[in-house]
Design a protein around this nucleic acid. Structure first.
Lengths: 218, 218
DNA sequence: ATAATAAGTTAGATTAATCTAACAAAATTA
DNA sequence: TAATTTTGTTAGATTAATCTAACTTATTAT
């Protein structure tokens, strides 16, 4: 069994690899807010446990075993977020910190029951895919809203940044998963977009926002 | 903030004081399966933090602050057990181990929502009282079934032992909280009882069992 | 291509929680 | 009450996870 702390390293490695491709000690250190020497020594430990493929001065990689275990932790995290939103009426901006703790609970029946009560969901409240029971994750190929063109109509499928501030920003503008958005115009200078959806005819979204919104084309 | 480990010491002290009155180092050590010198040094630490009133060679006592904090942990534990049984359809014999972990979650809104969804329950699935938001606990004065007399009809109010084995024993005999039990006879030799309830006309319960069942007289 | 900067590692200290071995105090028994 | 047993404490070692300081390797810029 892995400690809670080891689990946090595995999860960070998994998420960072999905976001950025290669992961190095400096980035992992920054993400976890843990100094580099500590990260190095933990990488050696996880390498002993065959969870990480570690070579000095090389990028950090999870082994297959490491990916599976990290995937299962993320599965627990995302199932929990879904449960908190769907069954406990908490807001999508509130659930991350709670799920961050509950993901470390050791109890297969607990998470299986969650899964069952939720009807075996495939994505969490932010549109991120929930890994399956073997820890595997399938990313649908979404587009960033910022890569779409004037005149297109798209469906809000997921959000990249799940910080509370960003999610509140979306809440304030009545933006939810599944929302249909029409791109009215794009400002060439700063790439901001004017979009319409629901009852809103002309909302302005900055490029920073548009880069964090993933959409599906019809 | 207290560590998870400190929380476990506080909880054990609180529970043991409720069960037995005075608590000493040996018992606490046995309960937590932690060696005595470790317990002694933790008592000194918790004493520094004003959670425990510690004097060498004296019985261990929680301070008012310690009682409050322990009560709040037990509140989280029991609310969680209730939630798992009522809202997640888990059996009362399965919930203890999960609640043991969830009780350490730091998130006021999470537990307030649980409380709200459950309709502000006063007892957990084993009939144990749930401490209020200030950590205070009110024990109803129940009787042990073993102290009742032939001919009495009583209501199953709580169980003392919450081990999985005992709860499965009760499940197998269709015994639940609220059940009305009539005492048919008491065997003088071993104090075992023949009782009837529901569709069962003559169940034999050993004294070991009867001592762990708390009842209300009508 | 060399110097400067950034990234990564090694060595050694620190903290929290644990342990064992040895000792001391309190309670029990003879 | 003295001896024995039980209970509790002290001293010192250990482990996991962290840190800082010093050093090494790799990358970038001149």
């Amino acid at each position: 069994m892995n400690s809670l702390i080891e689990e946090n390293y595995l999860k960070a490695l998994f998420n960072m690899a999905n976001e950025a491709g290669e992961v190095n000690v400096t980035e992992l250190s920054r993400r976890l807010e843990i100094k580099m020497p500590t990260v190095t020594s933990m990488m050696k430990k996880l390498s002993e446990k065959k969870l990480v493929l570690y070579e000095s001065y090389k990028p950090l990689r999870l082994s297959e075993k490491g990916k599976r275990e990290a995937g299962l932790i993320i599965r627990k995290h995302r199932l929990t977020e879904m449960f908190l939103v769907e069954k406990m009426q908490l807001g999508w901006e509130d659930v991350h910190d709670i799920a961050e703790q509950i993901e470390h609970i050791q109890s297969p029946v607990f998470f299986e029951k969650m899964d069952e009560l939720l009807g075996y969901p495939k994505v969490d409240p932010h549109g991120s895919p929930i890994p399956d029971k073997s820890g595997k994750i399938v990313w649908k190929e979404y587009n960033k809203l910022s890569d779409c063109l004037e005149g297109e109509t798209v469906k809000l499928a997921a959000v990249i940044n799940t910080s509370s501030d960003f999610l509140k920003f979306l809440n304030n503008r009545e933006m939810r998963l599944g929302l249909k958005i029409k791109i009215r115009s794009i400002e060439p200078f700063d790439k901001s977009m004017v979009v319409s959806y629901g009852k809103r005819q002309a909302e302005v979204l900055s490029n920073v926002v548009c880069e964090r919104i993933l959409v599906e084309r019809e």
